[in-house]
């Protein structure tokens, strides 16, 4: 009787495992950003938005944006989107033409921290 129950359990397990998807990853890495990493935009954006490979913890995820001389140009703290917890947004002050650096620290919901930075350029008209 025990055996019978276990065979059913084993079948369920096997099915769940066979259905396991490709490309699972841990730790939140930057998937893409807007403005795109390293890109040049003609007009100043009002925010930088980043999309990560994992869901983020809002309480411990931050990002800052600085200009060439190291001044902060973000106009508020970075916020994780409530609908889509993989999306992080930093509002920006009006930006003059120049190169800017975004630095992010992410905590994914499995308690792992990652960080990184990238540049983008405002070309100006």
């Amino acid at each position: 009787m025990v055996t019978h129950r276990m065979i059913v359990a084993a079948a369920v397990c096997a099915a769940a495992i066979a259905a396991k998807p490709h490309g699972v990853c841990a730790h939140a890495f930057l998937d893409h950003a807007s403005p795109a990493v390293g890109s040049s935009v003609p007009t100043a954006p009002t925010a930088v938005t980043m999309w990560f490979t994992q869901q983020l913890e809002p309480a411990f995820t931050t990002a800052t944006v600085i200009d060439k001389s190291g001044n902060n140009v973000d106009s508020g703290p970075a916020a994780v989107d409530t609908q889509n917890p993989t999306e992080l947004r930093v509002p920006l002050k009006p930006l003059p033409a120049g190169t800017y650096t975004v630095t992010w620290h992410a905590l994914s919901v499995d308690t792992h921290t990652t960080q990184g930075h990238f540049n983008f350029e405002v070309a100006g008209r």
């Binding site: 769940a16 495992i17 259905a19 396991k20 998807p21 490709h22 490309g23 699972v24 990853c25 841990a26 939140a28 490979t53 994992q54 869901q55 917890p85 993989t86 994914s108 919901v109 499995d110 308690t111 792992h112």
Partner: peptide, 20 residues
């Protein structure tokens, strides 16, 4: 399992990973 690597993958693949 929520404290491991399986817990943070977004969407349906994440649920399957978690179950496994």
């Amino acid at each position: 399992a929520w404290a491991g690597h399986g817990g943070a993958t977004p969407g349906r693949p994440g649920d399957l990973h978690l179950a496994a």
